[in-house]
């Protein structure tokens, strides 16, 4: 990470009017760049004011780095121009695919965990980093089934990071959700994970779908106690910036301020 320290918060359009330079501000912001490529006229000035108050990480949604198709150069150009315009050095996305054969799904879909997939994805990552002139930080994603794979997730991630030179966005909620859904131990996963590659941490909410018998990574709920606990354990192993991600069911900014205070406490306790 080039200029991020401490604790962050996802900046949502709904928060803009509530943010005051003299009021509560996180140490840094994370923004979803695709949501800001085109900014409504009445939000532009405030957006630019708000992001000038704190360092910013761009966390993309549409890179589709794992899809078996060529990189969308037009999209990359648009992304680079956005990052350059706002002087954002840190750029992340997900270990997943969102589009195939030119059709968008707007969701993060799982990759086959195979050597071939690592080769293909690493090659794309390198090309993206060359073009963007930035490191690429990739988030371990949730998956609700394992598509035709012959590796474990942790092996897949370690090897992908090693081969590609990308950094890891360590999402502790996603580890927790995957562990619950697929019956592995989250702490063992963490012990095996090469955390030296981790750049920053996401923590988020999830919900249990009783009908499906699975936990869904919704980013639409407050962070659960078990995930705070797991974050605390993670922070004993790795000392990097952490942030709260909330993408759906967006509450008022003041509610996020309260959750940010909990994060602060968890981080403080873990680092004693």
């Amino acid at each position: 990470m080039n200029n991020i320290n401490g604790l962050g918060l996802g900046l949502r359009r709904d928060f803009l009017q509530e943010i005051d330079a003299d009021g509560f501000l996180p140490d840094w912001w994370e923004i979803a760049p695709e949501n800001w490529f085109d900014i409504p006229f009445h939000h532009r000035e405030k957006f630019e004011e708000v992001i000038s108050l704190r360092p910013v990480v761009a966390h993309g949604l549409s890179l589709s780095i794992g899809s078996h198709e060529p990189i969308d150069k037009k999209f990359l150009k648009q992304m680079k121009s956005f990052l350059d315009r706002y002087k954002i050095e840190d750029y992340s996305d997900h270990i997943s695919f969102t589009s195939l054969l030119g059709s968008q799904t707007y969701d993060l879909l799982p990759l086959s965990m195979t050597k071939k997939s690592i080769e293909h994805t690493s090659d794309k990552i390198k090309r993206v980093m060359d073009y963007m002139q930035r490191e690429l930080i990739l988030e371990n994603a949730t998956y609700y089934y394992v598509p035709d794979s012959d590796m474990r997730e942790v092996e897949f991630i370690n090897e992908l990071m090693e081969k590609s030179g990308a950094k890891l966005l360590l999402d502790v909620n996603n580890i927790y959700v995957n562990a619950q859904n697929h019956g592995f131990d989250a702490h063992e996963f963490l012990n095996e994970l090469d955390v030296s590659k981790a750049a920053y941490i996401h923590v988020a909410g999830h919900y249990e779908d009783e009908e499906l018998g699975m936990i869904i990574d919704s980013h639409g709920m407050p962070v659960k106690q078990e995930v705070w606990d797991f974050l605390g354990d993670t922070l004993k192993k790795v000392d990097i910036p952490v942030m709260i991600e909330r993408d759906n069911n967006i509450p008022q900014y003041s509610v996020m301020e309260k959750e940010y205070k909990i994060l602060k406490k968890v981080v403080k306790n873990a680092r004693i």
Binding site: H68, L101, S112, T114, P147, D148
Partner: peptide
């Protein structure tokens, strides 16, 4: 390639 097939299958179902 099996990795592409797995992605295509998921998209087709979705």
């Amino acid at each position: 390639m099996r990795e592409f097939k797995a992605q295509k299958k998921l998209i087709d179902i979705a």
